[in-house]
């Protein structure tokens, strides 16, 4: 019973409810949307965003921001695609991509912690640098002719519904969720984001935690880059441009607060699925997918504003209850004298 109550109080539940309502409404207009096959197509299509959102949620939960993941995805995708084209086995490409992610994450982390550059500025600058590096690396050309076997990986599926990529991503996400919520190290992220000075006082290595968060975010962006290569089949120098904003939006939709300390990767995943399915939903509602950004923007603003107003009301109510409880007890105390 207690767990049930806790589940219903979780912030993710409102995102999940929203996702379900959205699907039902679209299904009511166009029943074809609710076919199992189509639903799974929608889910499978969200893998890149889910990976990005889970990675960046580490950084956001520690109270910082990372807008360099779009470029990191692009660079990792370009590097791994070049390796794959050259005939390297996929594990080499994966390791190379992850090294790229670790590198970018480390630079971000050091800039934010050691040099004390505000995170938005640090990662914005790094985003520009890495994006330029993609042009330098690829000479501004597309990386094409990826081996067919690798492209086929993105289509390989269990029971012809769930692709291995989506399945693995969800498993991975649940593992990360477990680490973040149940282990000592994992709780550090939320502690740092909630109250940095407090975390510092009780002996949590704040700077180290932040650097790790950036590295994790980089690694996830790099893995998303590999998935991108497999799904899209070629890499342009602008690959992943603007994905960082969509990932942040996904986190916010999933109930993660940009102020830090609040939110889970499960929420980020639900948010990412919402983000990824909007363009598909529009198609089924027979709107032009040009309206994708408009809907995303409205959704983001409405949900965040509503959430903020609700939270404020709850805080206000709690404060009033505390106040009245205090006056009552004071009156009671006087009566005893």
């Amino acid at each position: 019973m207690k767990t049930l109550k806790r589940i219903f109080k979780a912030r993710e539940i409102s995102s999940l409810t929203f996702l379900i309502i959205m699907f039902l409404v679209v299904g009511a207009v166009n029943p074809a949307f609710l076919q199992i096959r189509n639903l799974f197509l929608t889910f499978n299509g969200s893998v890149v965003f889910v990976l990005l959102a889970v990675g960046i949620s580490f950084v956001i939960i520690t109270g910082e921001i990372d807008v360099s993941i779009g470029a990191t995805l692009g660079l990792a995708a370009a590097v791994s695609a070049t390796l794959l084209r050259g005939g390297s086995p996929w594990i080499v490409a994966l390791i190379a991509a992850i090294l790229v992610g670790i590198g970018v994450g480390l630079i971000n982390g050091i800039g934010v912690t050691v040099l004390r550059v505000p995170s938005i500025i640090m990662t914005l600058g790094v985003n520009g640098i890495v994006r330029g590096a993609i042009y330098v690396y690829t000479n501004g050309k597309w990386v094409e002719n990826i081996p067919f076997e690798f492209k086929a990986l993105s289509q390989a599926s269990i029971f012809k519904t769930v692709t291995y990529f989506f399945f693995c991503t969800i498993l991975f996400m649940l593992l990360v969720h477990f680490i973040l919520t149940k282990t000592r190290q994992g709780r550090h992220f939320a502690a740092v984001g909630d109250n940095m000075q407090g975390a510092n006082l009780i002996g949590i290595p704040v700077d180290k935690t932040k650097v790790i968060a950036y590295i994790v975010s980089g690694i996830f962006a790099a893995i998303a880059g590999i998935v991108y290569v497999s799904r899209v089949g070629f890499v342009t120098p602008t690959a992943g441009n603007g994905y960082e904003m969509k990932a942040i939006a996904a986190c916010v939709l999933g109930g993660i607060s940009l102020a830090g300390g609040v939110g889970t990767v499960v929420g980020a995943t639900i948010g990412a699925i919402i983000m990824a399915s909007i363009s598909r939903v529009l198609v089924f509602l027979q709107f032009s997918s040009d309206y994708d950004n408009t809907i995303t923007g409205i959704l983001l603003i409405v949900i965040v504003v509503a959430d903020s107003l609700i939270q404020r009301r709850i805080c206000e109510k709690a404060r009033r209850e505390r106040l009245s409880a205090r006056t009552l007890s004071e009156v009671g105390g006087k009566g005893d004298e």
Partner: peptide
């Protein structure tokens, strides 16, 4: 940051 992020999507859309 969040509001102007939403604004960025909204106005470009």
């Amino acid at each position: 940051m969040v509001v102007t992020l939403g604004g960025q999507f909204l106005y470009s859309g």
